[in-house]
Design a protein around this nucleic acid. Structure first.
Lengths: 202, 202
DNA sequence: CCTACCGATCGGTAGG
DNA sequence: CCTACCGATCGGTAGG
């Protein structure tokens, strides 16, 4: 007997990711999600408690993916200089996005449709995540590896540039995921006055 | 007899900008806009043809502001090197955002809710605008002013970082609009290997 | 997972 | 700019 490989719940989240990415959470109805799965709108509620719960599942999963990737990148480069660590952090972030751009896009753009206390919880996790970038930039600056940038401004500059990838990246595009991670790491590193490693310098 | 200084139509667009920025176009109802103006939802239609027409008015106005600012920045620096011109282009872009972050935010995030042919028209204008950045980066690269970056990737990196400002900037914040324009110009310039002028280098 | 249905709200129109 | 109203659709529930 063939068992559905991917549980229904996961299929719902995948379809919702796609639709939330394409049209946004508010412009996507529960019936839109159901239609994509060839079931009735009301049947969705056998698997999920509410539309917002689906959004939360997606946002929480994405947040977890970013957090894990950052922890790994930092653990793998502990003891290295700030430049090398920041480059690896950037690459890890880009990899999470290119691995599932729709998931990342919903995380980046639709979290504000969460109700409290989930909204607040995500804001806190985002800030903790950004702090990795902020601290590394401040550290590199103190060590003389970077220019005298404002670490808060610079980390925001870099992170919003990275998150933009979720909006336009398509796996079949001109630039591969690996190439993109390297190029973006170089752009980010240089922006704070660090040394880019991937590209040949001028 | 006191005549309303700001015509009703303008007040509608201002209120709509605020709400579209805060909750998004799809999550804002015509009645929400009316309520903020202390009139009934149906009364709005004495001044506008549709909800989408209001979105279009906002998006079109924002696009015009960006286009004018870029044209001026390029005209004012004609004959200068690519680095100087790109820095001025970045400053102009940031200034448009800080002058009216809500307007800019709706332009950046909500244009996709436009129906054809407006949606397509805005996409074309966005691409023409981005070309200014792209071309300047390619030029600076050829001139040996910048590193060997991919001009398409680098212009996207920079522009998405700049547009992020519309999401978080508040006039009462830590960093003034002028300071922000200068710091972001430096970050952008350095990201392509150009020389930052505003900050003291390491 | 279905049918049948709920009250609320949506964008918008008619006719003053 | 109002009241009164339109058909369509919304998220969600009851009861199989």
């Amino acid at each position: 007997m063939a068992i559905e490989a991917r549980p229904r719940r996961q299929a719902i989240e995948d379809v919702a990711s796609t639709l939330f990415h394409e049209r946004g959470y508010a412009a996507t109805s529960v019936r839109d999600i159901a239609r994509a799965l060839d079931i009735r709108g009301a049947s969705l509620y056998a698997h999920v408690a509410s539309k917002e719960e689906v959004l939360w599942a997606i946002v929480d999963r994405a947040a977890g993916a970013f957090e894990r990737a950052a922890d790994e990148a930092l653990a793998a480069t502990s003891g290295s200089g700030a430049g090398k660590r920041l480059a690896e952090l950037v690459r890890a972030h880009v990899r999470v996005i290119t691995a599932d751009p729709e998931l990342a896009s919903v995380f980046v753009h639709e979290w504000r449709h969460l109700a409290e206390p989930r909204r607040e919880a995500i804001l806190r996790r985002r800030d903790a995540y950004e702090a990795h970038f902020r601290n590394l930039i401040a550290e590199g600056r103190r060590a003389g590896e970077f220019d005298a940038v404002d670490s808060r401004l610079a980390s925001t500059f870099i992170l919003t540039a990275l998150n933009g990838i979720a909006t336009w990246y398509r796996p079949a595009g001109r630039v591969s995921a690996v190439e993109l991670a390297n190029r973006y790491a170089d752009l980010a590193l240089r922006s704070v006055g660090g040394v880019a490693h991937t590209e040949t310098s001028r």
